[in-house]
């Protein structure tokens, strides 16, 4: 934690004037009282970002055919994985999230199955598998390009009462709750981008993803293995560190180089000018002639 406690006061005062040069924007990590877990739980509908963390292994779900499937099987295949959590009776958001992803895939010029894999996990323990199949069919048609069911599997959570889904949701910080009144799940519209190794790399909010953002998110998660060389070039300029979620070092480097160039240019100019001044002073004959107001 970068806040100072009382003991730091004197020291702070002593070195206070030296600090300016080293100052930069420090990220603030906040821990709940008596816990060393950053922000464990917000009992709310929300998304708590867990960038840079790994999703737990060993999670299993059920496919439409009723067979158990492991999330791990999608990982470590060299492709980033886009995960969505939702349910298919959902009157509004879930369908839009899926449609949004499908459209972004097309618009970004990415190929589902080749550049990345997607997976939709149902959070509803009472999911209707027919409805789920319909959704899957719809989005796959929307994606086009010959994408198959294997490229974008839709999984059920009917066998374990959605325990695995809840674990996955907790891991990515997706807080949802069941509203018994409306018999709906309350949740946010968000998709998660995982690296091929299962590390959380990006959160895509909303239902409409700008193609460039989407492409960058997938390319980044792929660690440069996806995308064209232009993408890689852009990435080199805009390096993204999932844990610190900052381009800051690169922006800072850009600024530092700029500022240093200017500083040295000015310093050079001043050196030349001052050397001339000193040389001039040496050459001046003492006692300049007293003038009568030459101009008036």
């Amino acid at each position: 934690m970068s806040r100072w406690n009382g003991n730091g006061k004197l020291l702070a005062f002593a070195v206070v004037t030296l600090a300016a040069v080293g100052v930069r924007a420090e990220p603030q990590l906040v821990f709940p009282q008596g816990s060393d877990q950053p922000l464990a739980a917000l009992q709310d509908i929300d998304v708590i970002e867990h960038l840079g963390e790994r999703i737990p292994s060993g999670l299993t779900f059920t496919n439409v055919a009723g067979q158990p499937v492991a999330l791990d099987a999608l990982l470590n295949r060299g492709k980033p994985v886009v995960v969505t959590l939702g349910y298919h009776r959902c009157p509004m958001l879930c369908g839009l999230v899926l449609d949004g992803l499908a459209k972004a895939t097309q618009a970004a010029g990415l190929k589902l199955g080749k550049d990345f894999t997607a997976v939709d996990v149902s959070i509803d323990p009472a999911e209707d598998s027919k409805l789920l199949e319909q959704s899957q069919h719809r989005v796959l048609e929307l994606v086009g390009g010959g994408a198959t069911v294997a490229d974008w599997p839709f999984w059920l959570s009917t066998t374990d009462g959605a325990v695995a889904a809840r674990t996955l949701a907790d891991a990515v910080g997706f807080r949802y709750k069941f509203d018994p009144h409306s018999k709906q799940f309350a949740h946010d519209a968000v998709a998660f981008v995982l690296t091929p190794e299962g590390m959380i790399s990006r959160y895509l909010y909303g239902v409409d993803y700008p193609p460039r953002d989407f492409r960058m998110a997938v390319v980044e998660a792929g660690g440069g293995r996806v995308g064209t060389s232009l993408d890689k070039l852009i990435l080199a300029c805009y390096k993204y560190d999932p844990a610190a979620r900052r381009y800051a070092p690169f922006v800072m480097a850009f600024m530092r180089i700029g500022a240093l160039l200017v500083f040295f240019a000015l310093a050079g100019l001043m050196t030349v000018l001052w050397r001339k001044e000193i040389a001039m002073r040496k050459r001046v004959v003492p006692g300049p002639p007293r003038t009568t107001g030459s101009v008036a």
Binding site: L96, D99, G100, K103, Q106, E141, L142, G144, V207, D208
Partner: peptide
Amino acid sequence: AIYEPAKPAPRK
């Protein structure tokens, strides 16, 4: 609206 209604992509 900011989304377009879902319509299947033309099959090749």
